[in-house]
Nucleic acid binder design. Structure first.
Lengths: 334, 334
DNA sequence: TTGTACGCGTTATCAG
DNA sequence: CTGATAACGCGTACAA
């Protein structure tokens, strides 16, 4: 590995000149620049980002905190972040922090130690609002998180609007007994979708009885259980809104196992538009969310925050839209 | 942010002593140690890993190269790596390199620049064997990749054995006309599964005609197309082996869209055992692969390589087993 | 426009 | 067992 010194020696200049040439900022004489570039080429010089970080106090690494990388929703968000980072010459460090332990142990220290330039907080737990002192001074942006934290940037999915679309769509199709399987018990997104769904029904003069509100996470198995519970009620729902697609697929499986036809007997709607939803049978009606964009914009937001620390906090909402597919339809007899 | 100097001053010792205390290696008088630890606590000292890396030439970062983090198989592998890294005080940097461009541009430079201590190569493209000079001296381990590279450690899935299980299982159930939808055209895993399937049939005196070999990737839509192609042949197969579960789900969808019953009309088997396979209807018969373990062991292997650079290269195989579920069964009339 | 020299926060090598 | 002090590779005033 060659260093700045090697390059400087080879080009017959000082290391300062090489550094300037690389930073592309300060003025360097075209001829010298050419010589330097040549030397860099010849020696296959690659700057040591550790040294750069030490000297400049910028690591060019962004941290992404998510519940779990195996949750497809966050896989997409992560990919969106990664691409956007790469395009802007940043590196991304991804941290899955679903387990409480990690959150409370050395995990945040790691971020400190690594000196990430900024944090993308896409973990869902609402209680996480209270960040440890450790990282309180690291620029950050929230993804789909409580916007109650007014002093921070955040980019959210239009959860409420999406849930409203679902409710209205189902109402229009004659459904009157609707249930919801809500994901991530204490997550911002889950809460918003539940609230949006419920209040829309109320606004139209219908109720969402408590027994029609089932709590789930993002594991399909919870959807299976929810379906089982709901369909054995005295008066089962004619439509089910699952708060995310994984849950929806579980509900679908549960319904089908019990012998119900979807959508003939029960209509089913998900949220998030995971690609897999297009390939189950029947294909899943869902609410489209641009997950890549969510990640990409989070990075953009964070970087502008880093560049302008005192700018006004931004609150961005990502639009959603209903994607009607096969799993939902007009209520039988309507 | 406090530094070694701050801690040293507070504890009334030199930075060397603080460093020693932290490294836990060299002998430090218990009393001094106590004072130092106290100072660390008080000042909330956290070592700067950039400086550590610069001085020690170890970054404590491992790089994971995969085709795409949104490919569920690799999401699991990544999670396995991450957990194992965390447990051993390493950090993980994940790189999705499906697009050719990135691979050819500054991507490998990034690894160099960041000074990762080791590389886990889980990208599937076989041609990737020729690593750039850039990173030729970085310790590495291959995941499910051509073991033709005898001088490197690698951990592989028993692809061949798995495919053989599938073939024998289908034969036992009376299937004689079997097709395969193979994933990742030029991947090691894809090739091994195809070869294992084909040769097992041959060994039992049956053929795998060329028209029954359809190429796919890991996108369900390719499975749909494959199903469409296969079932419109003059003599369609009674069983289909999809090289991975995503593809299998696509095939399932395709079959169902065309009106075929699975497994009554056609038996279907996947590979990889993605959790989602349990929740489609019918649930997917597949070959179990411990994806977390794959990642975890890759990390272990890499770290022991780093500690003992001149040790014998290890070749580990991860066992697989058939998980028979609803999508496969006895051939009609057998 | 270019060069010198110091500092970034550690590790590691010496003496003591 | 402990303390100076020289690297590590680079950014950046400050000088020239």
């Amino acid at each position: 590995m060659s260093t700045l010194y090697d390059v400087a020696k080879y080009a017959g200049v000082s290391i300062a000149t090489v550094s300037r040439t690389l930073s592309n900022q300060m003025v360097v004489h075209p001829d010298t620049r050419a010589r330097v570039m040549d030397a860099i080429e010849k020696l296959e010089y690659i700057p040591n980002s550790l040294a750069q970080g030490l000297a400049s106090k910028r690591s060019y690494v962004l941290g992404l905190i998510i519940p779990d990388i195996i949750n497809p929703f966050f896989s997409y968000v992560a990919r969106g972040c990664e691409d956007s980072c790469r395009a802007r010459n940043y590196d991304l460090a991804i941290y899955s922090v679903d387990s409480q332990e990690q959150e409370e142990t050395g995990f945040y220290r790691l971020l400190r130690a690594r000196h990430v330039d900024g944090l993308i907080l896409a973990n869902t737990v609402v209680s996480g609002e209270a960040l440890p002192q450790f990282i309180h001074d690291i620029p950050r942006v929230y993804v789909d998180h409580a916007s109650s934290i007014t002093e921070d940037d955040c980019i959210c999915v239009e959860n409420r609007a999406g849930a409203q679309m679902v409710a209205e769509y189902l109402l229009e199709n004659g459904h009157r007994h609707m249930a919801i399987v809500s994901g991530f018990p204490n997550s911002f997104a889950g809460a918003a979708r539940l609230e949006g769904f419920k209040s829309t029904l109320t606004d139209h003069g219908f109720e969402l009885p408590d027994e029609f509100i089932v709590k789930g996470g993002f594991d399909p198995s919870e959807g299976v259980k929810a379906a089982d519970f709901l369909m054995t009620l005295d008066s089962p729902p004619t439509a089910i809104f699952a708060s995310n697609d994984m849950l929806a697929i579980g509900v679908l499986r549960g319904l089908q196992s019990m012998g119900y036809k979807v959508p003939a007997d029960v209509s089913l709607v998900g949220f998030g538009d995971l690609p897999i939803g297009e390939f189950v049978s029947p294909s899943l009606t869902t609410v489209f969310v641009d997950k890549f964009e969510l990640g990409a914009q989070a990075v953009d937001l964070l970087l502008s925050r880093i560049e302008q620390p005192s700018a006004e906090p931004q609150k961005i909402s990502l639009p959603v839209r209903l994607k009607v597919r096969e799993s939902s339809g007009v209520r039988y007899g309507f």
